[in-house]
């Protein structure tokens, strides 16, 4: 009954749209369209019922992006993903893998059979994070003795002894590959850097630093990549560069709904994953907080060459 009623009202509204091309009534029900006051209240109602609450579990996706599976359906396997998540949590029970982002400065100690002291420590700024599941990787960059060095690490590598975050922060871009063509001072971090501990509960700071690039030749066409973190890119561009940049622009891509969809994991699937994994992650976070509170100041250790 209600269905037939609704259909008849909708028939009316559709007929209205077809007949009156420039009709400006915004109400969906024809009776309320007559009363202006009711229209106003309906507007208020619609604006009130709009903001739907986002599940707080979904906030985990920023701190732990590797728990989400590969968005490409050719490489999806629900059983393998479940097993991988269980293994990831087991590894996190063994060692504290802290929350970090691209732009944070980390110190990684690994078990190195080739080095003399059997361990090797490297400090650097995280320039990228990629991969999903147990194959999640991150790359650290540093300039040592005027030589730029980059090292890739597996997040869940069992030979990693310790991952220490010296400075937690985000940058204006997702990938910081332009640091390779930037002045070396933007990638130099001392190996003796002390960890900067933020007070509990502060949101992750976004470092708004804009990097200066060295003159050309560059490794990639940074001007075409819509990067927010570069300050002096325009001074190195020729006329031809600027023309080609305009020609290469794809302004329709930001409206491409299906492209976005194919790169993301939908909310329903994400909530399933996070509800599976959240309790354990919360426990680990609490344990980490306890250890930071208990930790007293220790004298800086001497670094091995």
């Amino acid at each position: 009954m209600a269905v037939t009623l609704r259909k008849s009202t909708e028939l009316f509204t559709v007929a209205k749209w077809l007949t009156r091309r420039d009709c400006r009534t915004l109400s969906s029900l024809p009776e309320k369209a007559k009363l202006a006051s009711l229209e106003v209240t309906e507007k208020a109602e619609t604006s009130r019922r709009r903001p739907k609450k986002v599940n707080p579990l979904l906030e985990n996706r920023h701190a732990y992006p590797e728990f989400l599976p590969d968005p490409n359906p050719k490489w999806r396997n629900s059983l393998r993903e479940k097993l991988e998540r269980a293994d990831m949590l087991k590894r996190r029970n063994q060692i504290d893998i802290p929350e970090f982002y691209v732009g944070s400065i980390l110190a990684v100690t690994i078990a190195d059979p080739h080095s003399q002291g059997k361990t090797n420590r490297f400090v650097g700024i995280c320039i990228e994070r990629k991969g999903c599941g147990l194959r999640a990787e991150f790359t650290l960059r540093n300039v040592v003795d005027h030589q730029g060095v980059e090292v890739r690490y597996d997040l869940y590598d069992p030979t990693i002894h310790k991952i220490q975050v010296l400075r937690v922060e985000k940058r204006l871009d997702d990938k910081l590959f332009y640091l390779r063509d930037a002045l070396p001072e933007y990638s130099t971090f001392s190996f003796d850097m002390d960890p900067e501990i933020l007070p509990e509960g502060t949101p992750v700071p976004i470092n708004p630093v804009k990097v200066e690039l060295k003159p050309k030749p560059w490794l990639e066409r940074w001007e075409r990549q819509e990067l927010q973190g570069i300050s002096n890119i325009e001074q190195y561009l020729t006329k031809k560069d600027k023309v080609r940049r305009e020609l290469r622009k794809t302004p329709w891509e930001k409206y491409d709904l299906m492209k976005q969809y194919r790169k993301t994991i939908p909310i329903e699937e994400q909530t399933d994953i996070w509800s599976e994994v959240n309790s354990q992650l919360q426990q680990l976070q609490l344990a980490r907080k306890k250890s930071t509170r208990k930790r007293t100041f220790s004298a800086p250790k001497t670094q091995l060459g």
Binding site: Q147, E150, D157
Partner: peptide
């Protein structure tokens, strides 16, 4: 680009 844990240099 090297294997994991092997450093890569700028030159």
């Amino acid at each position: 680009t090297q294997k994991v844990k092997v450093p890569k240099f700028d030159s």
